[in-house]
Amino acid sequence: MAKLKLILIAVLFVGVVGYLIYSGLQETTVYYHTVDEVLAGQAHDGGRGVRVTGTVVPGSVRRAADELAMDFQIADQADRPALTVHYQGVIPDNFKEGMAVVVEGDLKPGRREFDAATILLKCPSKYEKAPEQS
């Protein structure tokens, strides 16, 4: 009897927690795309915008002198084709060329350009400086 109760509770527990995780994932998971995937036309907008990872191509950043806007290019690797990104908004403090970023926004249909609503930085140096590059 006591054992049965225990099993019942365990099943209920696993069921409820499993359901919460599953339904949560269904509603909130965001998929990343690489620049190559986007350029090959494989990125699909799931209704929640597109999210692209890449490295900021050195020398590609154009900031309007007095405006909250900038253009830059991202690529998977130095020798891969690049995607041009337009961004309007406050530029994050730690944005720089050559760093890995995630841009979130809309893909302009038929063009190799991207309108970013947000820039997320994958910055390894919040607490410690990155090891010196030699």
Partner: peptide
């Protein structure tokens, strides 16, 4: 599998119950 991101919205939804 694919690269996915689980972020604040997932946890915020789960924390309420």
């Amino acid at each position: 599998g694919r690269k996915i991101a689980i972020q604040a919205p997932f946890f915020n939804a789960a924390v309420v119950p």
